[in-house]
Each structure stands twice: as structure tokens, then as C-alpha cells.
Design a protein around this nucleic acid. Structure first.
Lengths: 204, 204
DNA sequence: AGAATAACCCCCCTAAAGGGGGTGTTGGAA
DNA sequence: TTCCAACACCCCCTTTAGGGGGGTTATTCT
């Protein structure tokens, strides 16, 4: 029996997953949390095999939580379950210990198959995610570093330096440096042009 | 009995909604579609009272589909069900005939309450959405004028206020006013978010 | 004639972004 | 072991953007 924990702040998604997994023979949902803090508590009290982890959580970043889980519960296998289809997130989650990456528009069969594959020790990426990862892996040249890409995404989403600093627990001056460096690397002179480039060139 | 149709490309969301609604007395899901084309077919064959409509659909834009549904089935009440919290989307959906706007992180009770309220002839907006809408309704602002669109394009292209002013033979302060008004109308708080919205929604 | 709206202009003031310099740590490749 | 890239941080300073007000015209619809 594969025991699954869900950490996701969308009640509807949690309900849907629960129904899907419980209906599947050989696996069941043993707990669910709607934020990072509850998630950590849940992990402490409830032994499980698989964690389905959202990236968008109200209190902490899912990617950090992924790293935390991987460090504190190395035996636990993590599958990212998110709407983000940007390579950046996949790269980061895998780097932080995730063994699978499921997009929320994945078909139910993909989800159960993913759980089984990852439980068996493998890696699993849902169709679209797999394509994106393959595309980038052969191209290789990501000329922005991970941190830079991360910063860029946050800028594109409209966060100010102050907000980004708080979110990442860094100094404002640090964010400033990154921002200036991004302008330099991308060869643009202001945020507006950078955002446009980031979107049209799919850098995020 | 309130008959509900769901149009959303996330199977898990559909499952979750279905479970939630079917468990609620007095309402039931009579059909679901995962894209716009299937959605249109479904509407043709299946009479219903409420449509829960996602904005992110693989084939067509949910906002356009909203308008289509409203025109072809005026009796049908539409509730937007989406993750977008920008005012722009709410405004557009309401303008296109939606009677409610639910964010995907809404609590289950909000969803069922929303369905009931809208079925009863009212309007319903989930907590966060409601705040955003109320804030904007008092201030007003529907579509972009020619001039505003022109300004927006120039901003997206990375020109500063000074440059735009010179280019259009206007005062810098005038450009400033336009820019501020654009932020207000589009419901975003800075240039980065505005540029993103302008590009992804093809406002330019 | 009156109301509404687009287009235009101006002030003050603060917050945020950007330009140009710099420091130090770390972890991996050579 | 040395070297380098990535990362995080700091200073001073100027420009740009954004928040809050205040207006005037001309047109268009009723």
C-alpha cells in the first residue's frame, strides 16, 4: 500500500486528488495540508511514502519546502504537483529532491502512474513537463543562472525588490544587484523591456 | 435541482468540483468539458443552469467563450472559476456575461454558496475577488482608449516617460497621468505586471 | 442644455529602479 | 591548490515611477 500525503492550498485540487488516489487499488491518501507549516506537522506525525507537493503555498515556497522534506525525510519521495510549466520550476524542484513533476492539467492516469513509478524508485514527468525538460537538456545553454531566472520570474510577476527580498530572505541590495545584472545580461535598459523579453523569449 | 456544467482543463479540478457539487443537496454536475470546443458541444446537447468556466483553456480563451455562451444561451448563468486574481480578468468576464468569479483557492463553501447565489439571480465573488472588484468599481474604468493603448505599447517597448513625451509632443506629467491611469484600469501595481498583462492578453 | 468622456496639462512628494563602484564566501572544475 | 562562477551583500548617488491631488478643453450622446 502506497501512502500519500498531499500539500496544496487548493481545496478542490485536494479533494480531487484524494478521490482519485483512494479509488486506485494499492494507494491511499493518509493526510493533506493546505500550507507549509501544517505540512511539516503532518509529516512529523504521519509516516508516508509519497508527498504530492504544490509550489504555490500561502506561507512558504514549495521549492524550499521540497528541499526541507528531502533533507529531513530522505526516504520520502516527492512529486511536484503544480500549474507551472516553466523549465525553471522543474529544474529547481528536481534539484531540491523531487523525483517527479506533474502538471495540474495532467490526466488522472498520469498521476497514478507517476505515483507508482516514483514509489518504485524511478522518476516521472507528465507529458508536457517531460517535453520541456528534454528540450532544455539538449540545448544545454541556459545562460541565466538559477538564481537569476528565479529573480526574473518574480520581477515579471510584478514583485518589487522589497517584496522579493522578503520572499527570498535576502537583502534589498542583493536583489538590486541581481536586477542590474539581469538588465546587463539581457541587454535592456529597464524593467518594461526586460519583462517583454522574458515573456517573448520564454526565459521564464 | 441546479444543473451544473464544468469547463476546465484540469481533470483534478473537475473531479474535485464534481465530488463537491454532487455531495451538495439540490445541485449536481450534468457534464464537464476540458476545452472550448467540447464545451460548446456539451452546451448544445445538455441543458443546464450554471456553467463553471475556467479562463485558461487549451484551444480558445475562456473570456471569449464566456461571451459566446452568454450570447447563445442568455438564460444560462456563468461563474468564472480561475486562478487569476487580476482585476482585468474579472472585469472582462463580468463584461462578457459572467455573474460570478471564484478563485481556485476558494473554500468549498464559497463555491456552493456561489452557485446557489448566482442560480437565484444574484452575483457572487469569492473573498479576494470581491475585494478587488469593489475597489475598482467605485473608481470606474472599463476599456482602454486609443491613446491609452498607444501609451501602453510604448511602455511595453521600454520607453521612459521622458522619451514618450518627446515622441508624442506631450508633457512628461501627462504621460505620468496616463501611466497611472493604466495601472488603475488594469488593476496592477507596477510596470512589470502591466507589461506582462499587456503581452499575455494582447492588449498591444 | 446638460452629462459624460477622451485627451490634455500641472503640482508636490515618496518609493522604487537603475548606474557605478566595491567586498566576501563557497563549491566545483582544472 | 588555484581559479572561477555563482551567490550574497554593501555604499553613494541620480533618475524614473508611482500616489495623491488639482485642472481645461472639445466632442458626443442624450
Amino acid at each position: 500500500m502506497i501512502n500519500v500525503i498531499i500539500i496544496d492550498d487548493h481545496p478542490i485540487v485536494v479533494d480531487g486528488m484524494r478521490q482519485l488516489i483512494d479509488a486506485e487499488p494499492g494507494m491511499r491518501v493518509v493526510g493533506a495540508a493546505m500550507n507549509g507549516a501544517d505540512g511539516k506537522e503532518l509529516l512529523k506525525s504521519t509516516p508516508a511514502d509519497i508527498v504530492l507537493l504544490d509550489i504555490n503555498l500561502p506561507d512558504i515556497n514549495g521549492m524550499e519546502l521540497c528541499e526541507y522534506i528531502h533533507r529531513h525525510y530522505p526516504a520520502l519521495r516527492i512529486i511536484a504537483l503544480t500549474g507551472f510549466k516553466e523549465y525553471f520550476y522543474m529544474q529547481k524542484m528536481i534539484h531540491n529532491g523531487a523525483s517527479g513533476y506533474l502538471l495540474k492539467n495532467a490526466m488522472p492516469e498520469e498521476i497514478t502512474e507517476g505515483i507508482r513509478t516514483v514509489y518504485g524508485g524511478g522518476e516521472y514527468f507528465s507529458d508536457e513537463a517531460g517535453n520541456v525538460i528534454r528540450m532544455h537538456r539538449e540545448k544545454g545553454g541556459i545562460f541565466l543562472t538559477m538564481r537569476e531566472t528565479e529573480l526574473l520570474s518574480l520581477i515579471v510577476e510584478g514583485y518589487t525588490n522589497r517584496e522579493i527580498a522578503d520572499k527570498l530572505f535576502l537583502g534589498v541590495e542583493t536583489i538590486n544587484s541581481y536586477r542590474k545584472n539581469l538588465l546587463l545580461k539581457l541587454g535592456v535598459k529597464n524593467t518594461a523591456a526586460m519583462v517583454r523579453l522574458a515573456i517573448t523569449e520564454k526565459l521564464v
